[in-house]
């Protein structure tokens, strides 16, 4: 790969900070549902942060708050020192379900953000081609989502989230709906896509998952959340060397980290 076709974005990645963020939803019976309680967090630019926790602990809610799609009940979230009151401009989001537009081809789905943001499509053609190539979808540009498998669809969604050179990428259990083998493949796709964005440049990633192994494989930092109302229980730095490959999974350090996180859940009486 030559230097001029890397996927690194020029402006630095986003710094995300959460200050005492709480979120309360009205429950159907008139009571209140506390989803998040006083979550504080400081993510440096370019970090790949894995967010793990039991289901229903408010991981997704937290992501929606960073995305600016929900407003926190109390506290505040800032991106690059600026308070989030609506979706940030250089933001990419991948949801659990791919949310592809069925009536658009793969190509037109990938270029959707360019269209919505009224950017010059011509300038992003090469990038779209390159992204699809990196996830092995070359030749499928003219296909409709309905003609693809679940794993292929999610890869299209990932390409779409990266096309507009986001400086913050939020992923909400993106691989929950695909089978274990595909999931492994997608993990390495994602590593390859984000490998070039490190140390203060490129893209900050917040990746929600309930798979401890996935979080350890992908992240620089792992946030362990408690059951509802969600709190950040532990922040674990992940010093596994990069680039991470299939071999990473058999390293003793990998298992030590996984065990470490699992014991954190044990101490909550969860596992």
């Amino acid at each position: 790969m030559s230097a001029n076709d890397t996927l690194v974005t020029d402006p630095p990645a986003a710094a995300v900070r959460a200050e005492e963020v709480s979120m309360v939803f009205p429950a159907p019976d008139g009571a209140e549902l506390r989803a998040l309680a006083d979550v504080s967090l400081d993510l440096p630019p370019g970090a790949f942060c894995g967010l793990v926790g039991p289901s229903g602990c408010g991981k997704s809610t937290f992501l929606m708050l960073i995305a600016g799609l929900y407003r926190p009940t109390t506290g505040r979230i800032t991106i690059d020192e600026e308070q989030v009151v609506r979706p940030w401009d250089a933001l990419g989001v991948v949801f659990q379900r791919d949310a592809l537009l069925e009536w658009r081809t793969v190509w037109d789905n990938v270029l959707l953000p360019i269209e919505v943001k009224r950017l010059d499509k011509k300038k992003y053609r090469d990038r779209a081609t390159r992204l699809l190539e990196l996830v092995g979808l070359t030749g499928f540009e003219g296909f409709y989502p309905g003609e693809l498998s679940g794993g292929m669809r999610q890869r299209v969604a990932i390409c779409r989230s990266l096309i507009h050179e986001p400086r913050l990428l939020l992923m909400d259990e993106p691989f929950a709906a695909v089978d274990a083998l595909t999931r492994e493949k997608l993990n390495f796709d994602l590593l390859r896509l984000t490998a070039e964005s490190q140390t203060g440049r490129g893209t900050t990633v917040v990746f929600v998952t309930h798979s401890i192994e996935e979080a350890v494989l992908l992240s620089d930092q792992i946030l362990v959340m408690s059951p509802r109302p969600g709190k950040i229980l532990r922040l674990i730095g992940n010093d596994l060397p990069k680039p991470r490959t299939l071999a990473t999974r058999s390293e003793p350090r990998f298992h030590a980290l996984v065990d470490d996180i699992r014991s954190a859940f044990h101490s909550m009486g969860l596992v």
């Binding site: 933001l91 949310a99 953000p113 919505v116 943001k117």
Partner: peptide, 21 residues
């Protein structure tokens, strides 16, 4: 679907864009 609308909003789509696209 809700996620489709979230996606559009996360891209800062205008109400008109969400309607038409």
């Amino acid at each position: 679907p809700r996620e489709m609308l979230y996606l559009m909003r996360s891209l800062r789509a205008s109400p008109w864009q969400i309607f038409i696209k």
